[in-house]
Design a protein around this nucleic acid. Structure first.
Lengths: 249, 249
DNA sequence: GGGAGTAATTGACCTAACTCAAAGTGTTTT
DNA sequence: AAAACACTTTGAGTTAGGTCAATTACTCCC
């Protein structure tokens, strides 16, 4: 296995470090307020929700929760970056998503029955997340049904985006999957070129795209040799996305 | 391309045949009522919604909608079976989902912005669907916010299930993807054996699992030779799912 | 029941991608 | 500054699975 050590062997159980610093920095609060799940909330409801939540600091590679653990909370990323992954019976570690500041994750658990995490979540670097009790959000929604519209929009969008992820994975060859992945990272899709930053280390992007790190490296080297991307560490510059699409047939 | 003709070449535009038969057969109505998106509705609201909808009959292989078409409706399957797929630039047809009676599809479009279908939908055999105006459902939800809870549960469940589909597709080898797919078809998962019916023709299951029909056929022949499944047309009998999981490493 | 059309299987061959191994690069620690 | 570590790249050999072609099995019509 090329992916160094797995989280499974690194930790015996998640160790969460709540920190006392209240969640009131103006930028953090602003980020929370701009998330669809919270944007409609009035000040009082939002404060009440935050009051019931805990702020958690996670170290590099620290596990937040495990697959199949009962899910009593969902999370909002204040800073850092996390990834979601699954471990199969042979211990292979498959990355499913990466999560940036301003995103929520495990929020589908609010309505899962039984509520169990569907994957592992770990910090890719030192990060801070807001740990929100599922019940608190549920109660708030029940007493203010008008908030449900925004939540519905968010959930529907999430379902569409997962559908799109699935679509990439039905592409049979590794090069075309990588190309589609890169184009999705571009702010305007295939419309115009630009620079993208890989949201994960290359070996984890490879895992996300169901290929080996070596394959990823070779494909990228090949695209580079053909002048289709310029590579600078985890920053890629794509000048002509249309040409990339053309060669992916 | 092994998948015979594509829908793209078969049709120039979807031809929808609304039929006059009102949607009031007791069993059809019962099925609708048991779907989470409608189960909470009171009789009057449900009747109003049905009144604004149209009943559509689809012939074998008939296209219902195309990818990127503006989405003004979502659908409930009354009878038959449909599949969702995408077509890429080289015309390859990739199956993403199959839909059975009692299911809804394109329902995420209720909250998409802009509302455009993310894929093609076609009937796999002669089918009937209820075509529900997105706006009608939206209006109903807005005037009855209490219905939103059930909708939220449904959307969250859908997102989880797409996540799970994605997870299967990050499994790198074709045999293990097929095994996981089969186990998911079993009513009780890996808990106990049983008979499953493939929801799609074999060549489309292959496409759903990002492999060639030939590969699908060979893997199934191999599982059969090892006594892991018994195959009878599209019905498979799996006596010991645990053994299947064991060999998939 | 025969013929057309479609789906599934099987064989032979080939290539994309995996595996293993080693070396290179950048980062953190002491 | 060196050592330790993590990640990435490159090379060589192997294999899973794709491709092409031919055969068989179904299904639907007439």
């Amino acid at each position: 296995m090329a992916l160094t050590q797995t989280a499974e062997t690194r930790y015996t159980k998640p160790v969460l470090v709540a920190i006392n610093k209240p969640f009131d920095d103006e930028d953090g609060l602003q980020a929370l307020r701009s998330h669809p799940l919270f944007s409609e909330l009035n000040g009082k409801d939002l404060q009440h929700l935050i009051h019931q939540s805990r702020r958690i600091r996670l170290g590099h590679h620290q596990l937040l929760y495990r697959q199949d653990m009962p899910a009593h909370h969902f999370f909002f990323v204040i800073s850092g970056r996390l990834r979601l992954y699954r471990l199969d019976s042979s211990g292979i570690d498959r990355t499913l998503d990466s999560i940036a500041p301003g995103d929520c994750f495990a929020e589908v658990m609010i309505y899962a029955d039984p509520p169990r995490y569907a994957c592992y979540a770990e910090a890719l670097k030192s990060s801070e997340v807001l740990m929100i009790p599922v019940k608190a959000y549920q109660d708030m929604l029940e007493s203010n049904p008008k908030y449900a519209q925004a939540a519905l929009r968010h959930y529907a969008k999430r379902a569409v985006s997962r559908f799109h992820d699935l679509e990439i994975m039905t592409v049979q060859n590794a090069r075309d999957r990588l190309i589609r992945y890169l184009i999705d990272l571009l702010p305007n899709g295939a419309e115009e070129g630009g620079e993208v930053e890989l949201p994960l280390p290359k070996c984890l992007v490879a895992s996300r795209l169901a290929m080996q790190p070596e394959t990823f490296s070779r494909i990228l080297a090949d695209l580079k040799a053909n002048g289709l991307v310029r590579v600078n560490r985890s920053r890629l510059f794509i000048s002509d996305p249309q040409r990339l699409i053309e060669i992916s047939q």
